[in-house]
Nucleic acid binder design. Structure first.
Length: 130
DNA sequence: GCATTGACGAAGG
DNA sequence: CCCTTCGCCAATG
């Protein structure tokens, strides 16, 4: 797998174990996203808060941007902004792709917003509590 | 190396 | 309640 990482992160599709130490936050984010149960959704901010140290919500967004090229796939459709809006749908190839994936999860979307978002919200800080 | 740009979010006005 | 500002920090020009 893999070629050595030349730059900091963004080594493309490298599996977790091949990344250099100290630059693991993409993988940390991905790990958390993989833990989001089907039918539930989380937010950039909540994930950043859960991984608190040195990660901001923006960086979670960056991690999602890079998530499309990794295996196994990341259920990035389950990450929305704090209002339950599908702000990342632009990055899913087609305009409706993210919504379709959510529908497949059993999650309804209306006007680019998760229906019943408050109930479906999955917060790693409380759900993954030791 | 400085300036701008975000799949963000909180705070202030 | 809407709009702006600011913190966040890697990536890009």
């Amino acid at each position: 797998m893999a070629k050595k990482i030349k730059h900091n992160l963004f080594s493309d599709k490298l599996p977790d174990t091949t990344r250099p130490k100290g630059y693991s936050f993409f993988n940390d984010v991905w790990d958390v996203v993989r833990l989001i149960p089907k039918g539930r959704v989380s937010t950039y901010g909540a994930i950043a808060e859960y991984l608190s140290s040195r990660i901001s919500a923006r960086m979670v967004g960056w991690a999602m941007n890079a998530a499309h090229s990794v295996e196994p796939p990341i259920p990035a459709q389950r990450v929305v902004n704090r209002n339950g809006q599908l702000t990342g749908r632009i990055h899913f190839g087609t305009a409706t792709r993210m919504e379709e994936l959510l529908n497949a999860d059993g999650v309804l979307v209306e006007n680019d917003t998760i229906v019943d978002f408050k109930t479906l919200f999955w917060n790693p800080s409380t759900e993954l509590e030791e």
